[in-house]
Design a protein around this nucleic acid. Structure first.
Lengths: 248, 248
DNA sequence: GGTAATTAGGCACAAATATGCAGAAATAAT
DNA sequence: ATTATTTCTGCATATTTGTGCCTAATTACC
């Protein structure tokens, strides 16, 4: 990875989180902390961030580095952190829309080299920020609210490909009904996504667990992995585990 | 392999991946790294990429990540104001990408009832904000820089539809060469867009008038309407009028 | 004030670069 | 076709840049 790419990545991180830790960046970018420190120093001299002991802060917002701990971390960031561990170089991965998926994309390491396919416009836009991944969008009529492609053409195109993993941002999931959703057109596409993937991963914050919507996307048996912000051993998730779903 | 072919290849790689490494290019193009370095230097001088230690980065790479202010926005607002007058209820309209097009979309009246098709992700996102228009996205592989779909599949899909109007955000236009652009894959799509439309409208701020890029999209005769921020009677635009282009 | 984490600065090594030069290849002129 | 001229390319050289490791100094936090 080129130095300027690192710089861009660091600035991007600052843009999202308002702060970065040298230690984190060192791991994410797979370079020594010395290099990160020099990067931050350089960017500070260019007045693009403010370097502080331990990392750097955004120029505009002056928060302290300290309130960084896992406790205050929003649920979706925790989910994204767990989910990204499933993604390996060379994989073909299908993504839905939703803010949890966006978090997942933001957390992808810059050196990851994989192909992502999506039907969601915001997801596609976020994917394009990453340096090494190839992005394919399956287009057709776009749904206003969901900001995603829907319709028979999308279903057909999805059926023509086999994906290693499918990540679904999930509105509602429970043991009896499985994944449920509101709109027919969204459901058609999500079904097609699930049946084209070797493994289906549902990303859901715990608030969404055991809620039900009008229409069924798929039964719980079709979900291979469920990721929430909770500990995998949490009592709330036990019924899913008993149905054979891997909990992360 | 000719020098120009190498240059085209390098720009192509940059558009897809946002970066190139001198060492990679040296192997791929079977020339010494010295030659690659001189190529990159030359392209940097022409402001077609940004040379860095170890390779080169896309020009828009920094731009998108650092500073998202729209260039020449007042001019673009004037252009958008003129362009929207061409759009009527019930029309089927094709849009390219670019900030001028985004301005056009923002200026569309909410009661407008038409169908818009695009290959550009940011354009699609902006279109979705409007209440009454139907949005169709033609998807495929996405180019990093241009944030748009490219490839044979896109060209094929475009050829299957006839549009009332095609609005092109234009990088370079002049009387001799017509509309020109940088990158082969973008040009392929723009050509397909033009030939599928009954009328082609070029939107260009006056700074772009009489500039030329490496590759030709279409001759000036294929442009039906040219919209700039200038008065239609402006001396700069007379040559275009003489070639039969309607100036607005 | 003690302890652990972070940092600055020096050093070493590898990688990338600039530069001059010579031969090859393309282009123009005869 | 032949020659002259320019452009292009690869090689050898010295130089610069980027990175990681080391140690001493500094900082943050109890």
């Amino acid at each position: 990875m080129l130095k300027k790419e690192r710089h861009a990545y660091i600035l991007h991180e600052i843009d999202i989180h308002n702060k970065v830790l040298s230690s984190d960046l060192s791991i994410q970018l797979k370079v020594s902390e010395d290099t990160i420190r020099r990067d931050l120093q350089e960017l500070d001299e260019k007045e693009m961030l403010t370097k502080v002991h331990g990392g750097a802060l955004s120029k505009s917002f002056h928060f302290t580095l300290q309130n960084n701990t896992v406790y205050s971390q929003p649920e979706k960031k925790i989910i994204a952190y767990k989910a990204k561990e499933l993604i390996k170089d060379g994989m073909l991965i299908l993504l839905s829309g939703g803010t949890t998926i966006i978090e997942l994309v933001k957390s992808l390491p810059p050196e990851l080299n994989a192909t992502f396919i999506t039907v969601s416009i915001p997801t596609a836009l976020e994917l394009l920020n990453h340096p090494n991944i190839e992005v394919i969008f399956i287009g057709n009529k776009l749904l206003k609210n969901a900001q995603m492609s829907v319709g028979a053409e999308v279903v057909k195109r999805l059926s023509e490909i086999t994906f290693d993993l499918c990540f679904l941002g999930t509105n509602s999931i429970d043991v009896e009904n499985g994944i449920t959703d509101l709109e027919l057109e969204v459901i058609e596409v999500k079904r097609a996504m699930i049946s084209s993937a070797k493994k289906t991963v549902s990303l859901a914050i715990s608030k969404k667990i055991n809620t039900v919507q009008r229409m069924v996307v798929c039964k719980i048996e079709e979900v291979d992995i469920l990721i929430t912000e909770l500990d995998p051993g949490d009592e709330l998730l036990k019924p899913f585990h008993d149905k054979g779903v891997t909990i992360i």
